[in-house]
Simulated scan of single mutants.
Amino acid sequence: MNKIVEKLETWKDIFIKNIPNIAIALVVLVIAYFASRAMNSIVNKTIGKRIRQKSVRDLVSRVASAITILVGLYLAMTVLKFDDTLKTIVSAAGVSGIVIGLALQGTLSNTISGVVLSFRKNLNIGNWVETNGYAGEVIDINLNYFVIREADNNMVVLPNKTILENPFKNYSLTTKMRISIECGVEYGADLKKVEKLTTETIRKNFNQDEIGKKVEFYFTEFGDSSINFLCRFWVDSENALEKLKAKSNAIMEIKQAFDNEGINIPFPMRTLEFVPNNKLNLSQVKEKQDSKKEEYLENA
């Protein structure tokens, strides 16, 4: 009992001696706590203008808040002169971090990729993109996955890592898209009239002067049943759906213009030959085959 009492007396003396340090450490921890809350709010508001994903904003703000708490804890332990204990904790945390990192390598890779994608200026929610064989509107960039809504309203969920490691096409980065239309006209058509009529129809329905572009028209080949041409023009569009609508309207207008001027768009034709009297004499065919066979054997 005497030894226990002596030990308690020693601890009491140490505690009384370190009361100022303990008070300072508690003040540091309180300041760190309120500073972390303030840091959380400030970071959330600061990056909120650039990142629309709530999950990513929360992650970044929480990381900043945790760093503030850790700095305060480090200062408090330094004041209390727990340097050896602090070194032990840091060493253990380092080893544990390596083990956890190896175990969650795929998850952490997707999480980090999600944060990186959220800060990229050339990729945002609402953009129309094409990547990894899928095309559609970006609905969400989460911490682990990337969501695309295709034109048929199907949702495609892709890991963030595949988006970051593979190239993608962003249709929303430009407000102009070029449309190409291939068609053919009959051989008897006036080719100069076809070119003039096509370019005027496009200019009339798609104002190229406002866009600052010109309509391009080229005859490309002599086809089996038509002379084919290529017409290219520009439209104001930010996604593939608007491009499809503009191309559909252009095809309808060109077809209507050709019909009004009597210009035909030919299609492949097949000629069928019928046997006279609609009856095939099989015996005559067999006799011809036998005679050709005998002639071949004699020559051989």
Rank of each mutant, 00 (worst) to 15 (best):
M1C: 10
K3W: 09
I4E: 11
I4S: 13
K12H: 13
D13N: 15
I14Y: 13
F15V: 13
I16E: 14
K17A: 15
K17I: 05
N18A: 08
I19S: 10
N21Y: 06
A23I: 14
A25N: 02
V28R: 01
L29Q: 04
A32T: 03
A32R: 02
F34Q: 02
A35V: 06
R37H: 14
A38G: 14
A38L: 12
M39Y: 08
R50Y: 13
R52T: 10
K54F: 10
S55D: 15
S55H: 05
S55K: 07
R57M: 08
D58E: 13
V63G: 07
A64S: 07
A64V: 01
A66F: 09
I67Y: 11
V71H: 07
L73I: 14
K81G: 09
F82H: 08
F82P: 01
D84P: 02
D84C: 06
T85G: 14
L86E: 06
L86T: 15
K87D: 10
K87V: 10
A93H: 04
A93N: 04
A103Y: 07
Q105S: 13
Q105G: 09
L108W: 06
N110L: 07
N110T: 02
I112N: 05
S113C: 12
S113E: 00
G114V: 04
K121M: 04
K121D: 13
N122A: 00
N124T: 11
G126Y: 00
G133N: 02
A135P: 05
V138K: 04
D140L: 05
I141W: 01
N142L: 03
F146N: 02
V147E: 07
N160F: 00
T162M: 12
T162K: 15
I163H: 06
P167N: 11
S172A: 07
L173F: 04
K176F: 04
I179P: 03
Y187W: 05
K193N: 03
K193A: 08
L197K: 05
L197R: 02
E200M: 05
T201V: 10
T201P: 06
N205P: 07
N207E: 07
Q208S: 00
D209H: 08
K214D: 07
V215F: 03
F219G: 00
G223D: 02
D224S: 14
D224M: 10
S226N: 11
N228A: 09
W234P: 02
D236Q: 09
S237T: 06
L241E: 14
K247D: 00
K247V: 00
A250W: 01
K255W: 01
K255A: 10
A257T: 10
A257S: 15
F258K: 01
D259L: 11
D259R: 10
I263Q: 04
I263L: 00
I265Y: 09
P266C: 02
M269H: 11
M269S: 14
N278F: 11
E295A: 14
L297Q: 08
L297A: 12
E298P: 03
E298Y: 11
